[in-house]
């Protein structure tokens, strides 16, 4: 399971973020070697209309975009509202705050410290990853999703 010694933080801006803003922020955050994992959370934006009479019709949405983070393509499936991070140590907090202040110029934000990521595998995780799941993957993606997390290589 996730080792309890790694501190976790949540960046919570007062607005839901545009893909361009997420891209700017992630490029600043992901370059920081003190951040182990980043989890983007927000309201889901489905590819097709999920219910109602128009169910199944295509759902073009300007917030569902592919962004580029340190050369890796990241498909945003949500309208990002909060960004959870697991850190190597609390020493990187000032640099996270600096990155947020640089990007969130038109609205305010808060940085919360606590436990925000999954600490134990659920039944769905067990079904997907088995008994010897890599603990770093837990909670990063919906276990029912066919897509895995984006791994940014070469920055550690």
């Amino acid at each position: 399971m996730t080792d309890a010694i790694y501190p976790q933080v949540r960046v919570a801006p007062v607005r839901l973020l545009n893909p361009e803003t997420v891209e700017q922020l992630l490029n600043r955050l992901a370059a920081n070697p003190g951040i182990r994992r980043i989890l983007l959370k927000g309201q889901s934006i489905p590819v097709t209309v999920p219910y109602g009479p128009a169910r199944g019709a295509p759902n073009p949405h300007s917030r569902r975009q592919t962004i580029n983070v340190l050369g890796e393509e990241v498909q945003l499936n949500t309208h990002v509202g909060t960004i959870d991070m697991e850190l190597e140590s609390a020493d990187v907090l000032p640099s996270i705050r600096a990155a947020c202040e640089e990007v969130f110029t038109k609205f305010s934000f808060s940085i919360l410290e606590g436990r925000f990521m999954k600490t134990q595998p659920t039944v769905s995780d067990y079904a997907k990853y088995g008994p010897n799941a890599d603990e770093i993957l837990l909670g990063l993606v919906d276990p029912k999703s066919r897509k895995g997390p984006v791994i940014l290589q070469g920055y550690r």
């Binding site: 801006p13 209309v49 109602g52 009479p53």
Partner: peptide, 22 residues
């Protein structure tokens, strides 16, 4: 008419209420 979520959510950067179907 359908997929109405947005009432209690934070607003978008441009001040619009969230709409899953935009």
């Amino acid at each position: 008419g359908a997929t109405v979520h947005g009432h209690s959510l934070r607003l978008d950067e441009d001040g619009m209420m969230f709409d899953m179907l935009q």
